[in-house]
Amino acid sequence: MFSSIKHSWISDHHDWEDVCSVSAGVLIVLSPLAAGSAATPSVAISAGLAGITITVMVMLQLMMLRRWEELLKLACGVWVVVAPLLMQYDGTLRLLHFVLGGTVVFLSVLEFWQDRSCQLDS
């Protein structure tokens, strides 16, 4: 019985994954506020665009799952993780972006795994 529960958790798509992805996207948009004046305009724009894109891609996935939506969400998650290194900012904002971007990347990879056997419109 335990193995079937474990297998189901890994292989089946769950609503909580979408809720977490949308929440992470919204938090990424709001994250420059946590840094206050330390966040430069370029960092705020980068976080805003990535967060909005993640949120919109999740909403599109809820309507009709397509592979490119998942790929774009994954790319945005990777960007959020890499941006602090490339744009050289640190502190709370850096930590937030590592955690939130990592969450988006993890959920994207998990959803790719779960949807591997589904017929998707490319």
Rank of each mutant, 00 (worst) to 15 (best):
S37L: 04
V19F: 05
I45A: 15
G102P: 03
V80W: 05
I54E: 01
A35Y: 13
F106L: 14
L30A: 15
M87T: 01
L71N: 06
E17H: 05
L60A: 01
K73G: 14
L62T: 05
C76L: 01
Q88Y: 09
L27D: 04
Q88D: 15
I52R: 01
A38C: 10
F112E: 04
L86Y: 12
T40N: 12
V26D: 00
S4Q: 13
D121G: 09
I54W: 00
M59D: 08
R116Q: 10
I52A: 15
L33G: 07
C76Q: 13
C20V: 15
A75I: 12
V26F: 01
V109Q: 09
V82I: 14
L96Y: 02
S11T: 12
M57W: 04
A50G: 06
V19G: 01
S8H: 14
V29Y: 06
Q119D: 02
S4H: 15
L72T: 15
V19N: 06
G36A: 12
E111F: 06
Q119L: 11
R67Y: 08
H14C: 10
T92I: 15
Q114D: 05
W79E: 09
Q61H: 02
H13N: 09
L100M: 02
P41V: 14
L60C: 05
F106P: 00
S122V: 11
E69F: 03
M59Y: 03
V58H: 03
R66H: 13
L65N: 04
E70Q: 13
A47Y: 08
L120V: 10
A39L: 13
S23R: 07
G101M: 09
M1F: 12
F98N: 05
D90G: 11
S8Q: 09
T92L: 15
V80Y: 07
Q114V: 04
V99F: 13
G77Q: 11
W113D: 03
G51R: 05
R67L: 11
G101Y: 06
V80G: 00
E69K: 06
I54L: 01
Y89K: 02
H14Y: 13
E69W: 02
A35T: 10
S11P: 00
L65S: 04
S122P: 00
L27Y: 06
F106Q: 00
I45S: 12
L95I: 14
P84E: 08
L74C: 07
S21F: 11
W16G: 02
G77K: 03
H13L: 11
M57P: 04
R67I: 07
L96I: 08
G101S: 07
T53Q: 04
E17G: 01
L49W: 10
Q119K: 08
A39Q: 09
V81Q: 07
L74V: 04
H13Q: 12
D12R: 14
L72G: 01
V105N: 05
D18R: 05
P32K: 11
L30C: 13
